[in-house]
């Protein structure tokens, strides 16, 4: 199993390595200055040399991502439950949700700064806003997609609506919830950076806007590498949790 996993990941490792090698060669051949485009070797050097600084800012950003994401998950699940339970709520909430999604975060973020001020809270709100939508829409879809015959079965057992919600709607929405969460964790990283971009004194986004005008481009890229690593790490973590929490979901289709 583990050996197979390793073999499966060989192509992607190969692609990443080739990109790095090509990039390195290009920078050297074309003699591109580091402030314009640092070679991967420069970036890794920066990752190593500036590790304490990067680590400190990473912790701040990670904190924003995790809290913001959890807020999105909780509210997303609650609102999806409302949509699943009531058609009236579904009809009245959806336009609001869609308009929420179409508001450019890049415009809202500075406003939040004005309304709430600096600090952790506005970043959490930006992260939550950006990752909220895929969670709500997917989970609500899951709640709506329950097997009608299962519901009828519970009805003949004398179940009430709350029991149907708990015993069918929630479990059948979980696979959908997880695919929403997978999308949400990757974009929540963007949310944190946007939140920091418009005004902050710490975090990877802050480090990037501070390093750019100082021509520490290698530090900007080091931060980007860390952000991708966070994104990939969270994505894998969600996949792992999914297997743990809903081991049955991969077989669900074969049961019909």
């Amino acid at each position: 199993m583990n050996k197979n996993k390793f073999i499966d990941s060989i192509p992607s490792i190969f692609i990443v390595l080739s990109v790095f090698v090509l990039w390195e060669i290009l920078v050297h051949i074309q003699d591109i200055p580091t402030w314009l485009l640092p070679a991967p070797s420069e970036i890794f050097k920066s990752l190593y040399l500036d590790f304490p600084k990067l680590f400190e800012h990473t912790l701040v950003t990670l904190q924003e991502i995790l809290i913001g994401f959890l807020v999105a998950l909780i509210f997303g699940f609650l609102i999806a439950s409302g949509i699943g339970l009531s058609t009236t709520l579904e009809k009245s909430l959806y336009p609001f949700l869609i308009s929420l999604q179409t508001i450019p975060i890049i415009v809202i973020a500075p406003m939040l700064l004005v309304w709430i001020g600096y600090g952790l809270l506005p970043k959490i709100i930006v992260v939550a806003l950006i990752s909220f939508f895929p969670i709500v829409v997917n989970t609500a879809d899951g709640m709506k997609s329950l097997d009608i015959d299962m519901k009828r079965l519970l009805l003949t057992m004398g179940a009430n609506n709350w029991q149907i919600f708990r015993k069918i709607m929630i479990p059948s929405s979980l696979p959908y919830l997880f695919s929403g969460v997978r999308i949400a964790v990757s974009i929540s990283v963007i949310g944190a950076v946007i939140g920091e971009w418009v005004g902050s004194s710490e975090g990877l986004g802050y480090l990037m806007i501070r390093s750019k005008p100082q021509f520490h481009t290698e530090l900007v890229f080091a931060a980007i590498f860390i952000l991708s690593a966070i994104g990939i790490g969270l994505f894998l973590l969600v996949g792992f949790l999914e297997k743990l929490v809903i081991p049955w979901s991969r077989y669900e289709n074969s049961t019909e």
Partner: peptide, 15 residues
């Protein structure tokens, strides 16, 4: 709630 009912589909809950 006063009769048991079963269909062709076993409707076992996969979870």
């Amino acid at each position: 709630g006063s009769v048991s009912y079963m269909q062709q589909k076993d409707l076992l809950f996969p979870w």
